[in-house]
Computed example of a mutant assay.
Amino acid sequence: MAVLAVVATSISPTYASERVFINAKAAIVMDADTHKVLYAKNPDVPLYPASTTKLMTAILLVTHLNPDDKVYISPEAARQPRVRLGLKSGTTITAEQALHAIIMKSANDVAYAVAQTVGGSQQGFARMMNLKAGLIGCRRTNFVTPNGLHDDAHQTTARDVALITAEAIKYPRIVAVMQTKEYQIAGIPFRNGNRMLYVDNPSYGTLIGGKTGFTSKAMFCLALAAKQHGHTRVSVVLGAPRKSFMYRETRRLLEFANKEKPVQIV
């Protein structure tokens, strides 16, 4: 992994910046429309993204499959490590059900099934993921898996995840699923794993949605989008050492952006 080097920016150089310590390895707040960076810490350092990867999987799903198209759960898909939806090999679900499973449940088995359905194989889907990443401006992203399960070569950056998130929220199907709290597939109920969704009247604006992620090597990751005074802002935190830090630091950064308060991230 690359050596971390802090890069900090602020909304306005006119006022003295407040120094804010961020525990996560990398973080960024970006305007989704202009791609202007409001704050950043190590935005271009390659890191493991965990299940924030599934944002790209969701983009390819909605651009290649209609809601009622079938997604086949192969033996390889059914054997993917937890977290799984737990469908049996040989079953099928609709693309719309698959989208709910990968965004809300973060189901690794369903993400793998989507990769096989859309790309023919994990390798073929990874090529599609990397091509799409390049088209939306990602410069330091190399996807290997469709679900974010660990692979040493599967890396991206906070800036690139912000670009992918900004792209994902352009699709109403994805946003609708991000905002869904409860769902059921084949008699299996589950809730949305993004805790920010359950906060009433958030202090940072109006939540659009996002995606969490965790592996032991990536640690805790969160990509989140919110409406703020007519702007759409995207926050990304990668490599937070605790889940509580991941949520707290995301909230704080978006609060600073909402108030247009200059900070120096350290």
Rank of each mutant, 00 (worst) to 15 (best):
4 L>H: 00
10 S>A: 08
15 Y>G: 04
15 Y>N: 07
20 V>K: 10
22 I>T: 11
25 K>W: 00
26 A>R: 00
34 T>A: 13
37 V>A: 06
39 Y>V: 02
40 A>D: 14
43 P>I: 07
44 D>W: 02
48 Y>K: 01
48 Y>G: 09
55 L>H: 06
58 A>C: 08
61 L>F: 05
63 T>R: 03
64 H>Y: 09
72 Y>D: 10
73 I>N: 00
76 E>V: 14
83 V>L: 15
88 K>I: 11
92 T>L: 02
94 T>V: 04
96 E>W: 13
97 Q>L: 00
103 I>F: 10
107 A>G: 05
109 D>H: 05
110 V>Q: 09
111 A>L: 06
111 A>N: 07
114 V>C: 04
117 T>S: 00
123 Q>S: 11
123 Q>M: 07
126 A>G: 06
128 M>Q: 09
130 N>T: 06
130 N>C: 04
132 K>A: 14
143 F>Y: 15
143 F>I: 06
144 V>L: 01
144 V>D: 03
148 G>I: 01
154 H>T: 03
155 Q>R: 13
159 R>V: 14
160 D>N: 00
163 L>G: 02
165 T>N: 07
167 E>G: 12
171 Y>D: 12
180 T>W: 04
181 K>R: 11
185 I>V: 08
188 I>G: 13
191 R>C: 12
193 G>H: 13
194 N>T: 08
194 N>L: 04
195 R>Y: 14
196 M>C: 11
197 L>V: 04
198 Y>T: 01
203 S>V: 12
204 Y>H: 10
211 K>L: 00
213 G>Y: 07
218 A>R: 00
219 M>F: 15
224 L>V: 13
228 Q>L: 10
232 T>V: 14
234 V>N: 02
236 V>P: 00
237 V>M: 04
239 G>C: 01
239 G>V: 00
242 R>A: 11
243 K>E: 14
247 Y>W: 14
249 E>G: 10
266 V>A: 15
